[in-house]
Amino acid sequence: MPGATIALVDDDRNILTSVAVALQAEGFVTRVYTDGDVALKALIDNPPDLAVCDIKMPKLDGLELLRRLRAVSALPVILLTSKDQESDEAEGLATGADDYIAKPFSQALLIARIRAILRRVEFSRSDADPEGTSAGGGEPIVRGRLSMDPQRHRVHWDGLEVALTVTEFMILEALASRPDVVKSRNQLLDVAYHDEVYVDDRTIDSHIKRIRRKFKAVAPSFDAIDTLYGAGYRFTDG
């Protein structure tokens, strides 16, 4: 994790400077962008380990940048915004963000979120699953029409690839590792966010909606993730 490269995208140079300095003090390498179009090209052509992107920017705003990025990349992204409505958070997560922080925010909180997502990336690529939720410790998972390769971070449904973010991958992996077993929102939070205490359990709902939408894009009849109201979610072999 030390030495990881973080891209910062914000048209406010004061925020860019203060956040970049704080991250560099923690051992991160930073790249800064004030233009969404320039940032998008850089994130695709020379991907960092994680991007922190403001929503409200001129020309290409953060949400549209993320939509275009998600068409070609599962790069972890944290969205920043001055908005604090629950619907705005849901929109950001539904667009494919791995996390969301409302301004004003503490730099300590941002750094904690960055570290948590980078840990998730490491866990998803490791041979051993520290939460004990992965079938076979990083071995491929095949459940009916679903196949998952944790080592390569690849997911297929009926042979068609489905691009998931790191967070989405870990949630689906937790469900698919134990088909027909109901997992509560809190259990899925523990898998996806580990020791973070800043995340609302309803965040899982937004990630599940996003996962379903991605699968339905390649298989309109996809219905392998059940919602059990008041209990949680379960995966059923397709």
Rank of each mutant, 00 (worst) to 15 (best):
S184L: 05
G96D: 05
G238V: 01
A74I: 15
I211E: 00
V77I: 10
A108R: 13
A4P: 01
S126N: 03
H153F: 15
R119I: 06
R212M: 01
D195V: 04
N46Q: 14
R115L: 11
T30M: 07
Y229A: 12
A108K: 13
G36N: 12
V32W: 00
A4Y: 01
D223K: 13
L188S: 07
V72E: 15
V181M: 06
R202E: 12
V142T: 08
G62A: 14
D10S: 04
Y193L: 06
D49H: 15
V21M: 05
S147H: 09
A116D: 13
P220L: 05
P104K: 02
L40N: 06
H194T: 04
L80F: 10
I141T: 11
D10L: 02
D10F: 04
A39T: 10
I114W: 09
D88C: 05
S177F: 01
V38T: 14
D205R: 00
E86N: 03
A108Q: 14
R202Y: 01
E26H: 12
Q85P: 01
M1P: 00
K41I: 07
R67N: 11
A7Q: 02
D223R: 09
T30N: 04
V162M: 02
Y33K: 01
T95G: 12
S177W: 00
V32R: 05
N14P: 04
G96F: 05
D49A: 15
A7P: 03
V52S: 09
A22I: 04
G36E: 07
L75K: 14
A112P: 01
G144F: 03
A97K: 05
R70S: 08
D54E: 14
L40T: 06
V197N: 08
Q24P: 00
A42G: 09
K214H: 07
D205I: 07
L16T: 03
S73I: 06
P104Y: 08
T165G: 11
T17I: 06
E89A: 10
R154M: 13
D226G: 06
G159P: 01
F169M: 10
V199W: 12
A135Q: 07
P104M: 10
E86P: 02
E161T: 14
V121H: 02
K41L: 11
V77E: 05
L50H: 07
P179V: 11
A176E: 00
V191L: 03
F123Q: 06
V52W: 06
L146T: 07
R178M: 11
G136H: 03
A94H: 07
L228C: 00
V199H: 05
T95K: 10
R152H: 15
R70E: 11
I117R: 08
I208V: 14
D45Q: 14
I117F: 12
V142C: 02
A112W: 01
R67L: 08
K56V: 08
C53E: 06
L65V: 12
A174P: 01
R120K: 10
A7E: 05
Q187T: 08
V197Q: 08
G27H: 04
R119Y: 07
D49P: 11
I44R: 08
A71Q: 15
D84P: 03
P179C: 05
N186H: 09
L146Y: 03
D61E: 15
G138K: 04
D10T: 05
A22F: 11
V162L: 03
H156D: 06
Y100T: 00
D200M: 05
